[in-house]
């Protein structure tokens, strides 16, 4: 923290992270609410929630950067499927562990580079680019796999998603690492500051000499690589990979980010909020199962939660402006 920041007062932490902390409080309340259902608060269930939330939290980190930069990516679910299939096929071919880990990330980065080039280079709006890519990638992956599932995955592959280090499940460890790394990147590096500047006001950022287009392109590349990692963690937990994997995943990732308080107009928010948002969505989805609420209602709950978060934000900024 440098001296140019707001001088520490009693409420400094609240002023800086108030939005994230209120989501955190909401998460605790929610766990308490579902905790009254027998079995919900058992250690193995809480552990499952963390493991299940890991792919979402990892993807939400990339999506946070995209949204802070004032962009959007609705092809994330399709990109996840492509990367998951790449991971499965690489692993089945008997490639070494580093290859199995790096190739999906590389695939994701290449997809991100194409999206980023179309957005920053050709200057097509991100919503159109990723809308097109959504069907290109989904169509491509189904065509490639002929709609069949990829099974018979080697045990070394499943070990990635089901393993643990010092008693902590690998997916959770990876997710925590990515959250911390993204947070540091956004808060402590020039690139991070540029991402906020570009999302806050692209024209002003360009006048200040920030290479706006290169920053946008890099954001998409990093987001793509994180999607690759998310796909690896996601796919290695199951014994088969389906070509319809990740359908609707883009909605979940965007929801996590928006619920976590990242400004949808860009320029504001932190990855901590998105991580809590991702966890919150997973707690709700598991909690509803414990409450025996029919799974069909789940999308409504998710949609209502997003609306609640954005309406609250809109009312709060309106009051602050007065």
């Amino acid at each position: 923290m440098t001296s140019e920041r707001i001088p520490p007062t009693r409420f400094a932490l609240w002023r800086q992270y108030g939005r994230e902390m209120s989501v955190g409080v909401f998460l605790v309340l929610l766990v308490g609410y579902f905790g009254t259902t027998p079995g919900f608060l058992r250690a193995d269930n809480l552990r499952d929630i963390l493991i299940n939330a890991a792919p979402l939290v990892i993807a939400a980190c990339g999506m946070t950067m995209v949204i802070i930069a004032g962009m959007i990516d609705i092809s994330a679910g399709s990109a996840l499927a492509v990367c998951a299939v790449v991971a499965g096929v690489t692993s089945k071919s008997g490639a070494s562990l580093p290859t199995v880990i790096l190739l999906p990330m590389l695939t994701g980065a290449v997809i991100g580079a194409v999206n980023g080039w179309l957005v920053a280079g050709v200057r097509i709006p991100a919503i159109i680019v990723t809308l097109g890519m959504m069907s290109v990638l989904r169509g491509g992956v189904i065509w490639w796999t002929r709609g069949e599932w990829i099974g018979n995955l080697p045990p070394s592959f499943s070990a990635i998603g089901r393993g643990e280090v010092a008693g902590i499940p690998t997916p959770v460890l990876v997710a925590v690492g990515i959250v911390v790394a993204t947070a540091l990147l956004l808060a402590r590096t020039p690139l991070g500051r540029h991402i906020y500047a570009v999302g806050g006001n692209p024209l002003a950022a360009a006048r200040m000499g920030i290479p706006v287009r290169r920053v946008l392109w890099l954001v998409f590349v990093m987001h793509g690589a994180l999607l690759g990692l998310s796909a690896l963690v996601y796919a290695s937990r199951f014994s088969v990979i389906q070509s319809n994997a990740g359908a609707g995943f883009e909605l979940l990732a965007i929801s996590a980010v928006v619920v976590g308080g990242v400004n949808i107009f860009g320029g504001q928010g932190t990855v901590w909020g998105s991580a809590i948002g991702g966890l919150l969505l997973q707690v709700i989805s598991t909690g509803l199962i414990f409450r025996r609420v029919s799974e069909y209602w789940a999308p409504s709950v998710q949609g209502a939660l997003v609306l609640l978060a954005v309406v609250a934000d809109a009312l709060r900024t309106r009051r602050a402006r007065r």
Partner: peptide, 27 residues
């Protein structure tokens, strides 16, 4: 009235309306 961008509103109601359709009819 609230001033939320259309992309976010309709992304949320896309999930919300589908959920209500599935939930009330039990698919």
């Amino acid at each position: 009235a609230v001033g939320i961008p259309p992309l976010i509103v309709t992304l949320a109601t896309m999930a919300g309306f589908r959920g209500i359709a599935l939930g009330m009819s039990q698919a």
